[in-house]
Protein backbone atom coordinates (compact mmCIF):
# COMPACT_ATOMS: atom_id res chain seq x y z
CA UNK A 1 0.00 0.00 0.00
CA UNK A 2 3.02 2.23 0.31
CA UNK A 3 3.24 2.24 -3.45
CA UNK A 4 -0.38 3.32 -3.70
CA UNK A 5 0.16 6.00 -1.10
CA UNK A 6 3.08 7.34 -3.13
CA UNK A 7 0.89 7.57 -6.20
CA UNK A 8 -1.76 9.42 -4.21
CA UNK A 9 0.80 11.81 -2.82
CA UNK A 10 2.11 12.56 -6.29
CA UNK A 11 -1.40 13.58 -7.24
CA UNK A 12 -1.77 15.63 -4.06
CA UNK A 13 -4.77 13.48 -3.02
CA UNK A 14 -6.90 15.23 -5.63
CA UNK A 15 -10.14 13.41 -6.23
CA UNK A 16 -10.42 14.75 -9.75
CA UNK A 17 -7.18 12.95 -10.61
CA UNK A 18 -8.73 9.57 -9.98
CA UNK A 19 -8.35 8.38 -13.57
CA UNK A 20 -4.71 9.38 -13.64
CA UNK A 21 -4.22 7.79 -10.23
CA UNK A 22 -5.64 4.52 -11.49
CA UNK A 23 -3.39 4.71 -14.54
CA UNK A 24 -0.35 5.15 -12.33
CA UNK A 25 -1.43 2.31 -10.07
CA UNK A 26 -1.78 0.14 -13.15
CA UNK A 27 1.75 1.07 -14.22
CA UNK A 28 2.91 0.13 -10.73
CA UNK A 29 1.14 -3.24 -10.47
CA UNK A 30 0.48 -4.05 -14.13
CA UNK A 31 -3.23 -4.21 -13.23
CA UNK A 32 -5.60 -2.73 -10.68
CA UNK A 33 -5.53 -4.86 -7.53
CA UNK A 34 -8.72 -4.84 -5.49
CA UNK A 35 -6.88 -3.90 -2.32
CA UNK A 36 -5.38 -0.88 -4.04
CA UNK A 37 -8.77 0.35 -5.18
CA UNK A 38 -10.19 -0.15 -1.70
CA UNK A 39 -7.31 1.82 -0.28
CA UNK A 40 -7.80 4.64 -2.76
CA UNK A 41 -11.52 4.66 -1.98
CA UNK A 42 -10.78 5.06 1.70
CA UNK A 43 -8.08 7.66 1.36
CA UNK A 44 -9.85 9.88 -1.14
CA UNK A 45 -13.36 9.18 0.18
CA UNK A 46 -14.60 8.18 -3.24
CA UNK A 47 -17.17 5.37 -3.15
CA UNK A 48 -15.65 2.10 -4.27
CA UNK A 49 -18.54 1.60 -6.66
CA UNK A 50 -17.53 4.78 -8.45
CA UNK A 51 -13.90 3.72 -8.75
CA UNK A 52 -14.98 0.33 -10.00
CA UNK A 53 -17.31 2.05 -12.43
CA UNK A 54 -14.39 4.04 -13.84
CA UNK A 55 -12.17 0.97 -13.95
CA UNK A 56 -14.75 -0.97 -15.93
CA UNK A 57 -15.76 1.89 -18.22
CA UNK A 58 -12.36 2.74 -19.60
CA UNK A 59 -10.86 0.06 -21.76
CA UNK A 60 -7.34 0.93 -20.63
CA UNK A 61 -7.79 -0.65 -17.23
CA UNK A 62 -7.35 -4.27 -16.30
CA UNK A 63 -8.84 -5.63 -13.10
CA UNK A 64 -7.10 -8.97 -13.44
CA UNK A 65 -3.42 -9.64 -13.15
CA UNK A 66 -1.79 -9.87 -16.54
CA UNK A 67 0.58 -12.56 -17.65
CA UNK A 68 4.34 -12.30 -18.02
CA UNK A 69 3.96 -11.33 -21.65
CA UNK A 70 1.37 -9.03 -23.10
CA UNK A 71 0.26 -9.34 -26.73
CA UNK A 72 -1.87 -6.47 -27.92
CA UNK A 73 -3.46 -6.73 -31.34
CA UNK A 74 -4.44 -3.42 -32.90
CA UNK A 75 -7.96 -3.63 -34.27
CA UNK A 76 -7.98 -0.18 -35.86
CA UNK A 77 -9.67 0.13 -39.22
CA UNK A 78 -6.47 0.21 -41.20
CA UNK A 79 -5.18 -2.88 -39.44
CA UNK A 80 -8.56 -4.54 -39.80
CA UNK A 81 -8.71 -4.15 -43.55
CA UNK A 82 -5.22 -5.59 -43.66
CA UNK A 83 -6.22 -8.73 -41.81
CA UNK A 84 -6.02 -7.99 -38.08
CA UNK A 85 -9.07 -10.16 -37.41
CA UNK A 86 -7.31 -13.26 -38.70
CA UNK A 87 -4.29 -12.45 -36.54
CA UNK A 88 -6.45 -12.09 -33.47
CA UNK A 89 -8.22 -15.36 -34.26
CA UNK A 90 -4.94 -17.14 -34.56
CA UNK A 91 -3.70 -15.72 -31.26
CA UNK A 92 -6.93 -16.82 -29.62
CA UNK A 93 -6.51 -20.30 -31.05
CA UNK A 94 -2.83 -20.65 -30.19
CA UNK A 95 -3.16 -19.34 -26.66
CA UNK A 96 -6.63 -20.76 -26.19
CA UNK A 97 -7.91 -17.56 -24.58
CA UNK A 98 -10.19 -14.72 -25.54
CA UNK A 99 -9.02 -11.13 -25.72
CA UNK A 100 -8.80 -9.64 -22.26
CA UNK A 101 -7.85 -12.96 -20.71
CA UNK A 102 -4.63 -14.49 -19.47
CA UNK A 103 -3.41 -18.03 -20.00
CA UNK A 104 -3.72 -20.32 -17.02
CA UNK A 105 -0.03 -20.51 -16.28
CA UNK A 106 0.03 -16.69 -16.34
CA UNK A 107 2.46 -16.55 -19.23
CA UNK A 108 0.46 -14.59 -21.78
CA UNK A 109 -2.25 -12.00 -21.79
CA UNK A 110 -4.08 -11.19 -24.97
CA UNK A 111 -5.62 -7.78 -25.49
CA UNK A 112 -6.93 -5.66 -28.29
CA UNK A 113 -6.67 -1.93 -28.79
CA UNK A 114 -8.82 0.34 -30.91
CA UNK A 115 -6.00 2.07 -32.71
CA UNK A 116 -2.39 2.79 -31.98
CA UNK A 117 -2.14 5.46 -34.63
CA UNK A 118 0.45 3.51 -36.60
CA UNK A 119 -2.04 2.76 -39.32
CA UNK A 120 0.47 3.03 -42.12
CA UNK A 121 2.36 -0.04 -41.05
CA UNK A 122 -0.57 -2.21 -40.03
CA UNK A 123 -1.47 -4.77 -39.02
CA UNK A 124 0.30 -4.11 -35.77
CA UNK A 125 0.92 -6.28 -32.76
CA UNK A 126 2.55 -4.92 -29.64
CA UNK A 127 4.48 -7.59 -27.83
CA UNK A 128 5.74 -6.56 -24.41
CA UNK A 129 5.79 -2.93 -25.41
CA UNK A 130 7.55 -3.53 -28.72
CA UNK A 131 5.62 -2.47 -31.81
CA UNK A 132 5.73 -5.02 -34.62
CA UNK A 133 4.42 -3.62 -37.87
CA UNK A 134 3.22 -5.54 -40.95
CA UNK A 135 2.52 -8.48 -38.74
CA UNK A 136 2.03 -11.79 -40.51
CA UNK A 137 0.11 -14.82 -39.34
CA UNK A 138 3.28 -16.86 -39.25
CA UNK A 139 4.93 -14.30 -36.95
CA UNK A 140 2.72 -15.54 -34.13
CA UNK A 141 4.54 -18.82 -33.83
CA UNK A 142 7.82 -16.97 -33.94
CA UNK A 143 7.08 -14.60 -31.10
CA UNK A 144 5.43 -17.23 -28.96
CA UNK A 145 8.38 -19.53 -29.37
CA UNK A 146 10.75 -16.78 -28.42
CA UNK A 147 9.28 -16.87 -24.98
CA UNK A 148 12.27 -18.36 -23.24
Amino acid sequence: MKRVENVLREHRYQRSHIIQILQDIQVEFNYLPKEALEYVSQRLKIPLSKIYSIATFYAGFSLNPRGKHLCTVCMGTACYVRGAAAILNEFERKLNIKPGATTKEMNYSLETVNCLGCCAIGPIVVYDGKYIGEFKLKDIGRILKGRA
Binding site: M75, G76, T77, A78, Y80, N114, C115, G117
Partner: peptide, 11 residues
Protein backbone atom coordinates in the same frame (compact mmCIF):
# COMPACT_ATOMS: atom_id res chain seq x y z
CA UNK B 1 -7.82 10.89 -31.22
CA UNK B 2 -10.16 7.95 -31.03
CA UNK B 3 -11.06 7.36 -34.67
CA UNK B 4 -9.30 4.18 -35.60
CA UNK B 5 -7.30 4.94 -38.69
CA UNK B 6 -6.54 8.57 -37.88
CA UNK B 7 -3.23 9.61 -36.37
CA UNK B 8 -2.46 13.16 -37.46
CA UNK B 9 -2.87 14.47 -33.93
CA UNK B 10 -0.36 11.98 -32.66
CA UNK B 11 2.06 13.00 -35.35
Amino acid sequence: EGDPGAYMDRS
